[in-house]
């Protein structure tokens, strides 16, 4: 099995998560060859791939070309991290200064699998790798961050008077932020059919003006 890891416009944090799967990485290398990973290795070949992971958003012609080539060469293309999945924080600025664009990977080419997160969680990455090396699409079951947060029996930030996007954010991270007492900022993007209106009124009832809520809300989410 041949794997490639391609970086577009992003912080490389999600690519680095490959190095944080420790024991998992050596197991992976027994079954797959990493042909292309410029962040990690000097010798890279770009030929045919079973799976290519693409990190980052598309912000220039060079990104676009790289991505289109990756799509041509990959049997399975995975959008790795929230920049690739939704455009990332850089996409939350509606108009970039000199009219540049900032697109999620899926708006340029067809994507087979999305692994959001800022950065993508190590556990989730490892589990997805296990699926992919066995030729199976990673299992997805969209719930909310609240699901994981409640199951961990954290104290709820909203009930304490704060703001947390957990109720309308896609599960899968294990709710590390509320666990540390910080409200979820929605880095994993939307849960299924999120009720923005109710969330905005909840925040307004806590004295946060609508414009501010929307700024927070679309830090990571793709504005529709």
């Amino acid at each position: 099995m041949h794997i490639g890891i391609v970086g577009l416009t992003g912080c490389s944090g999600c690519q680095c998560q490959f190095l944080n799967i420790y024991g998992g990485l050596s197991k992976l290398l027994e079954r797959a060859k990493i042909d292309y990973f410029p962040l990690l290795q000097d010798d890279n070949v770009f030929e045919e791939f079973d799976v290519i992971f693409v990190e980052g958003s598309v912000t220039c012609g060079e990104d676009k070309e790289k991505l289109k080539l990756a799509r041509e060469k990959a049997r399975v293309l995975v959008a790795l991290g929230s920049c690739a999945c939704y455009g990332g924080i850089q996409a939350s600025i509606e108009e970039t200064a000199c009219g540049h664009f900032c697109l999620p990977v899926s708006e340029v080419v067809e994507v087979d699998c999305k692994l959001p997160g800022c950065p993508v969680g190590v556990e989730r990455l490892l589990e997805s790798m296990a699926f992919l090396v066995n030729g199976v699409k990673p299992f997805e079951y969209p719930m909310t961050v609240c699901h994981e947060c409640r199951i961990n029996e954290n104290d709820c930030i909203i009930l304490k008077g704060g703001i947390c996007q957990g109720p309308i954010t896609l599960s899968g991270c294990g709710a590390p932020c509320p666990q540390m007492g910080v409200g979820c900022v929605g880095c994993r993007g939307d849960s299924d059919f999120p009720n923005y209106e109710a969330f905005v009124s909840l925040c307004e009832s806590k004295g946060i003006p609508k414009e501010r809520v929307e700024k927070l809300l679309f830090l990571f989410r793709r504005r529709r």
């Binding site: 699901h147 409640r150 109720p167 969330f199 909840l202």
Partner: peptide, 13 residues
């Protein structure tokens, strides 16, 4: 139901 965020907390607890 208009106020409901669909977070699932009510069934999880």
């Amino acid at each position: 139901s208009k106020d409901c965020l669909g977070c699932g907390t009510c069934t999880n607890v």
